[in-house]
């Protein structure tokens, strides 16, 4: 993922002094970018799989489209943050192994929930290692991912008791 976790060498070379990120912050944000690359791939894949499934897949398609847009925005924001700090964000891989194959509406919703659970977990990991604007970004990313995952589970008719997590990102 992170080819070289470069030590904090002259972070002001490219970005403003405010954009400085220490090595641990760069590592954590890079890990989150890698998760977002996979989420962009996975949500696009889910959307494609849902496309021919007709009216019964309409809600799931809407969730897939919204999730794709959100993950792409988060990836871009994180990438900009890393570039501003003079770090090199990880590139996307050509393809990813999906945790669930979205062969049906239910499976696609499970995939969407799983992808957002991963975003929440990776955001949780990053929160304590960043400050300022970067922390704001990952804190909000955690909440939004938790909400999307919950929507996906509720849309899949998962019992409300299990659709909601007590400590999103952490469990």
């Amino acid at each position: 993922m992170v080819a070289t976790s470069r030590p904090a060498t002259a972070p002001s070379a490219k970005g403003s002094p405010n954009a400085a990120l220490d090595a641990r912050a760069v590592t954590a944000l890079s890990a989150l970018v890698a998760v977002e690359h996979a989420a962009v791939y996975g949500t696009a894949f889910a959307g494609g799989a849902l496309a021919p499934l007709g009216a019964s897949a309409r809600d799931a398609r809407g969730l897939a489209t919204a999730a794709f847009t959100a993950h792409r925005q988060l990836r871009d924001a994180l990438t900009a943050l890393l570039l501003d700090a003079g770090a090199k964000p990880p590139a996307a891989q050509p393809a990813y192994t999906l945790p669930v194959s979205p062969a049906s509406v239910g499976a696609a919703l499970t995939l969407l929930a799983e992808l957002d659970d991963r975003t929440a977990a990776s955001s949780y990991d990053a929160v304590g290692l960043v400050t300022g604007r970067a922390r704001e970004l990952v804190v909000d990313a955690l909440a939004q991912a938790a909400l999307r995952a919950q929507h996906a589970r509720l849309t899949a008719d998962v019992n409300a008791g299990t659709a909601v997590k007590a400590l999103p990102g952490r469990l």
Binding site: Y124, A143, L167
Partner: peptide, 8 residues
């Protein structure tokens, strides 16, 4: 951050 997400 997790508590915030949970309450949301």
């Amino acid at each position: 951050a997790s508590l915030r997400a949970a309450e949301s």
